[in-house]
Design a protein around this nucleic acid. Structure first.
Lengths: 313, 313
DNA sequence: CTGAAAGCGCTTACAG
DNA sequence: CTGAAAGCGCTTACAG
């Protein structure tokens, strides 16, 4: 393994000088720079980021913790975050926590030990202590694709669940539905609770209540598209037709939602944009050794396709 | 930030001793150990993995490079790899390369600079130089979910594309299909070529040739399920019914393939198992500072659902 | 069983 | 513009 010292010797300069050209910092004489650059090329030198991180006290890496990487929505979020991170010369490590408090704590410990410069949380268990754990160690964190946590050191890139639920329920009401049910995620997600609450609020505004019995509901609103697809599958296998007998609405608008055979009515969420913004906010904060603080909320428009129709009787 | 030295002072011992109890290495007197453990608890000490990595010359992190994290097959692969890695106390960093040579090289550089202990490649561009780049720097690599690369320093956890294509083509032939077409991935994947070749071989064995014109084909075999779903979408929007007018087969058996509205005939690939095995092989090799070498091939059974039917006419 | 010492490969003031 | 020196937080022989 060739080190800074090898390059320095080859170029006949000091380690400091090599370090200066590698980092592009401070002024180096043109002829010296060229000598060093040649030595770097000839030795195939790659700077050791670990040594750099130790001394410079920044790992140049950020993390994203997601509940379920298998869900294309989170896949997209991670991909866009990675793209943005590497554009800013940061590495991205992903942690899958399944919204399990134990996995979250383990991930937190690991990220702290690795001196991660900042973390994006894209979903977590209810009452998770992960944000506080990180924040208390002065690691900036931004919540992406959810929010509603009371800590003003937190950055948030959120969408508007209240508004989304309002338009979903409004749409369904217009179609004559009066008995609607919410389909909760199996993972005990923080955001799951918020959507359910927003759902109830939208109903109440219309003098309605959530349907308690599944067989009586004429419409199902799922916490996300994957769950909506599973719901359609379950319903249709049980002999109920969507949307003839029952309507189903999703959340996220993953690519498959628009598939000819699915045509899922859902709310559109721009995962790519959220991943980008989250990284930008985070890296900015990390570079200035401060927390994020700013909050961004994006609207998510309702996309009406073919899984919703007029209520039968 | 509390360091080893802080703990040592608090416990009234040397840094070496603290290090020994932290790592659980060498024998430490019971009473000393307890003093140290208390000091660790009281100070909230987390070992600095960066410093450890620098000195011990191992980052305790491995990487997985995937073509498209948005594809649930790769999502599952990454999730299972992460689970296996953290069970062995390794971190996992994921890199999305889209099978672009430039992104692959960039990822390679970054992984080398971060002194990653090993990498799983789950897909790459044709003639990619990534494996060699890593191998030459003595970083063990295992190819997961594909293979066919000629370097005996490489570990491989593969499935059998030849066998799979043989059973797909056999199934379609039994249904009377004679004009079949292969749907290639937009990404220029290494494995894409292999499946296409296996497809041609299976046809030739039956005295058939690939259909050159789409409108004439009675069956489409896609490189993966996502592509198969897109194909069904395209076909049906153009007015052709699946499977009445034309049959479609996928590859991977992602969860959605079994959905009531899809019922995709496909070949089953166990992403979870592959991710696990790949990590085990890799970590073993990394710990012994050697390459992987071993090759595992799993069969992937054909799952016949409802997108394939008898050829018309 | 415990501790003093060297060193991993860098960065960062600070002299010159 | 360049270099000598200290030090980031650990691990690892090696004495004792």
């Amino acid at each position: 393994m060739t080190t800074l010292l090898d390059v320095a010797r080859k170029a006949g300069v000091s380690k400091s000088t090599v370090s200066n050209v590698v980092r592009g910092a401070s002024i180096v004489a043109d002829t010296t720079r060229r000598r060093v650059e040649r030595a770097i090329r000839e030795t195939g030198y790659h700077p050791n980021m670990i040594a750099r991180a130790l001394k410079a006290r920044t790992s140049h890496a950020i993390a994203i913790v997601v509940p379920d990487l298998t869900n294309p929505f989170f896949g997209e979020l991670v991909v866009s975050a990675e793209r943005a991170a590497s554009a800013m010369n940061y590495g991205l490590v992903a942690a899958n926590t399944e919204c399990l408090a134990s996995l979250e704590m383990e991930a937190g410990r690991s990220l702290i030990a690795r001196h991660i410069d900042g973390v994006i949380i894209a979903g977590m268990s209810r009452a998770s202590r992960l944000p506080q754990m990180l924040l208390d160690r002065d690691i900036p964190v931004v919540l992406s694709s959810f929010g509603g946590v009371e800590d003003n050191r937190l950055g948030v890139v959120d969408h508007d669940d209240e508004l989304a639920m309002e338009s979903i329920v409004g749409h369904l009401c217009d179609l004559g539905h009066r008995r609607m049910a919410f389909v909760s995620p199996k993972l005990r997600e923080h955001s799951g609770e918020r959507r359910r609450t927003a759902f109830r609020t939208a109903l109440k505004r219309r003098g309605l209540k959530a349907a308690t019995r599944e067989d009586v509901a004429t419409a199902f609103i799922a916490h996300d598209d994957i769950l909506a697809l599973a719901t359609i599958d379950r319903l249709e296998r049980a002999g109920r037709r969507v949307p003839r007998d029952v309507s189903v609405v999703g959340y996220d608008d993953i690519p498959l939602a628009g598939h000819h055979r699915i045509g899922l009515t859902t709310v559109h969420s721009d995962a790519g944009l959220m991943g980008n913004r989250a990284v930008e906010l985070l890296v900015d904060a990390a570079r200035q050794a401060r927390h994020v603080a700013s909050r961004i909320v994006q609207p998510n428009p309702l996309i009406i396709r073919t899984t919703t129709a007029e209520a039968r009787s």
